[in-house]
Design a protein around this nucleic acid. Structure first.
Lengths: 360, 360
DNA sequence: CTGTTAGCGCGTTCAA
DNA sequence: TTGAACGCGCTAACAG
């Protein structure tokens, strides 16, 4: 509507110089009580709102960080984002967010847009595929890779124990006397799923079992088709390991349609917890990842870079512990329905984790 | 690391003036092929990144919008945010996001922070309680209220048919011969829940039934306690209507613990769909709200304000249709498992909706 | 304790 | 077709 109010307008009304207003606002230097009162008064009268853009330009600090996740439909990424934003708030930073749809070109374009805005730091979930964010312009801003590392990059990363978690889960299945354990994962080459697959293969081989892997799309139809075929074959699997939530839910759906009883006829175990896992019957056993901690750790690492606390050259690669949550989808258990915590692995991160554990 | 590259650096290297570089970048005015080539060359050599902050200050447009939701844990808000961000992308705008935790003071503080950053428009989910964002400074930036209106405010709003959806659901229960239908909702005064309660009361009264309402906290324990007491009483309810997802899931959980069979012993119906609703047994009937459309519509309304297309004075209050999705949690149905679309109510919005339906 | 000067990087305006 | 000057709103540095 009206021309926007500038600091000089406030100064004029208060009968002081612009600098006095600035000093009142930032409150570091001494200002006489008299002047301060007049300034406050003028600010209130004019509804003055400081212009952060000008301030950003002036001192070359935008007090903004950026986040790029594949999407916000997946509760996993939504929660990560939430956790990151909380840390940003604690530091009085704003959060600019956008999505990549797991496409590396989109990721790159959006990252560049963030750079143009001079965000001070960036947290990204790398897209699958070729090496990304290689251009030198990405070297000038601290970047933390979340959930997935970028191989050969110069970015910090925070991920979870994907292989170890999977091994834990598969071993649990083996402990329940399953031999023919199939691994269900999405097609495509998302890093976390590759890791989980690798963990699966390792666990199977360690038990001298034959790995069977099926890559399927996200569609329920394809899952139904795959599972039906699988179960109709000779020597059908007696257990499924699902590499994420969506896969697990689709499998559950298919099993339900096919009237296959869990855990009697088939056992099933997933990676990543979800709201309903505990409510459905049978309650689903899963490998739980510390989502909030994941986001929080990435954000704290980023801010520690911004504060210059972390030596610039040394890359930090943090791997967070996961835990097996035993419920009822893999057969009878020892009556203990609480998580088996996984402590102090060789991969346990140092430093930051201590701080973040207190909060968890 | 090195001092950042400015436009003048590019100009110098290309042997032209800064304005020529600017023109090449913005591409509106004619620049000789020769000059353009040299500029492009210099840009590449220097890894020049235009400074959007300076540009924002210069032309008083940040090309940013803000979003404030209660949290990102709730898939509902996460999806809204996703949809909004998509629209922002289409307009080449960035999205600044933060959370209010459903606290009106936090909302106000965060909104002010956004204003200082000179976001051009703001989409908020109002917090429960007293009138908000009354200060005159909030009058200078277009604000759209999402999912809940602010009574007596001068903001546009986009919400869903809460009352109507609830009536639809409750009527469905009544059609299944239920008389003692209890309404389970959170304590607190969140607008959507108040509306749903009102719809519930209206539907009950219309059928000459006695409304029974229970306000409970989000805790599973309290839900269990409430439901146990309810079912133990004389003339216990034969059906539950839950005003949101979390409540529904907690109720499901409690019913499961108490070994109450659905739908034989009790029917249950919820407001808002969720991933697992279709997978659990029995599949849960719900009232579905058009989440993506909700976010998208709010964003499009905001951008239409920014473009100056919508007359400034006239407030827009859009109410989006919901649909009843009949599954199995309310007893046998007519074999039709597909949504009963709800078309052309008097409340159906005009204009924007057409555009947005094409996408849905 | 307070005011003045200058410049952050860009693009509009005006002149060449 | 191009360049120089000016100012967007703010604050560090330097007087006073």
């Amino acid at each position: 509507m009206n021309p926007p109010i500038r600091m000089s307008d406030v100064a004029k009304l208060a009968g002081v110089g612009a600098m006095t207003v600035s000093r009142v606002l930032n409150g570091n230097v001494h200002v006489s009580e008299d002047a301060r009162a007049r300034v406050m008064d003028a600010i209130a009268k004019l509804d003055y709102v400081p212009n952060e853009v000008a301030r950003s330009l002036r001192d070359q600090r935008t007090r903004q960080i950026g986040i790029i996740v594949p999407n916000l439909h997946d509760p996993f990424f939504a929660r990560c984002t939430h956790a990151i934003n909380l840390v940003a708030k604690e530091h009085s930073y704003s959060t600019v967010i956008t999505t990549s749809d797991d496409d590396s070109d989109t990721l790159s374009i959006e990252a560049k847009r963030m750079l143009r805005r001079h965000i001070e730091g960036l947290i990204i979930v790398p897209a699958p595929g070729k090496a990304q964010l290689r251009d030198p312009e990405f070297q000038r801003t601290p970047i933390v890779a979340l959930d997935r590392p970028i191989k050969g990059s110069s970015f910090d990363s925070v991920v979870v124990q994907n292989r170890r978690g999977t091994r834990l889960g598969v071993q649990h299945l083996i402990d329940h006397n399953h031999c023919r354990i199939a691994c269900l994962g999405p097609s495509g080459s998302i890093w976390t799923h590759c890791e989980r697959m690798a963990g699966y293969r390792a666990a199977m081989k360690a038990a001298e079992l034959v790995p069977i892997h099926y890559a399927i799309s996200d569609s329920q139809a394809e899952m139904l088709h795959t599972i039906r075929a699988l179960l109709a074959g000779k020597a059908p699997p007696t257990a499924f390991f699902c590499t994420n939530n969506l896969i697990a839910q689709n499998a559950l759906q298919a099993l339900s349609i096919l009237n296959v009883r869990i855990p009697d006829q088939i056992a099933i175990l997933g990676f990543d917890d979800f709201e309903m896992a505990d409510i459905i019957k049978p309650a689903m056993s899963i490998v739980r990842q510390p989502i909030d901690t994941l986001g929080r750790t990435a954000a704290e690492l980023l801010f520690s870079r911004l504060a210059g606390n972390t030596p610039v050259k040394k890359l930090r690669h943090i791997k967070l512990p996961v835990e097996l949550v035993i419920r009822d989808s893999c057969g009878p258990h020892s009556g203990r329905r609480y998580p088996i915590k996984q402590v102090g692995s060789a991969e346990t991160p140092r430093g930051l984790v201590t701080a973040q554990r207190r909060r968890a």
